[in-house]
Amino acid sequence: MTNTFGIFASVLGGSGLVLGLAYGWMSRDYRDQEIAALTERLSQMEDSRAALAAKADQAVAFEARLEDLEQALATARDEAEAARQAAAAPEVAATERVSDPVAEDVTSARLDFGDPAKGAEVFAQCQSCHQVGQGAEDRIGPHLNGIFGRRAGAHDGFNYSDDMQMMGADGLAWNRDTLDAYLENPKALVSRTRMNFAGLKDAGDRADILAYLRQFSASPQDIPEAAPTAQAPEVELAPEVLEIVGDTDYGEYLSSECKTCHQQDGSDQGIPAITHWPTEDFVVAMHAYKQEIRPHPVMQMMASRLSDEEIAALAAYFAQLE
């Protein structure tokens, strides 16, 4: 393939030179410019040849990775089967999680929206560009009435960045999760957004601001299909899965793979800390990746080959790390 491309490039380059010579014969003054242009085109073509070659290499790498993944999947299947058999064995006592709903606190809803009053204060830093509420108009940024449920870049009359419009066309719509991601790091979600804002790192601040903004979008009471005001559990897991008590030793063994990126001491530099999580949250998060509900591709890949027992083991291990 590389050879064919070389021949193709040299034939093109050659014919270009012939053309250039002929042109030069007709008008010698332009000859130097013409040669410069042709040389540039030649180097461009060389670049794209290199890019193509790199892509070919990548394809090989992808194939290798695919094989790896397939292998991992097969192993995971075997392991799952083994685990299933182990679980079926009578001597493995199921650890009971006594759950008495009456004894639980009544505030069972998982409200990932924060406090709207606090959110109004946090919103002060947004007001130099964004208006919200009655009579709000577009300023430097679009007004934020009705933002929940709206497609990205779709509010009529506002001049959005190309990237924002493209994301909207690709299906990005504003809900609690997408707005949270955007507020955390705007450019991570929409690369060349015009919103000149570094991001709100504090998850609590974001929850508060979203609770505040939610008040200015359609109410589900009036329009039942309007965006939720509470957060749904990410994945519905069978109680048996949540009841698995993780083996911390096994978890420690498995964790070496996680620690390539996530730091053991719980520090958080670009990659989230995963120590001291409530085990249930950890299990839910991993299953959300495994079921590709959470979007991160690396985590999806890592979680895809973990069995229920392995996820429980990791959860137990990271929860008790000093």
């Binding site: 409200l111 309007a226 005001t229």
Partner: peptide, 10 residues
Amino acid sequence: EATDEKIAKV
């Protein structure tokens, strides 16, 4: 679901 403030859409 019920929260202390209201019935909230999930």
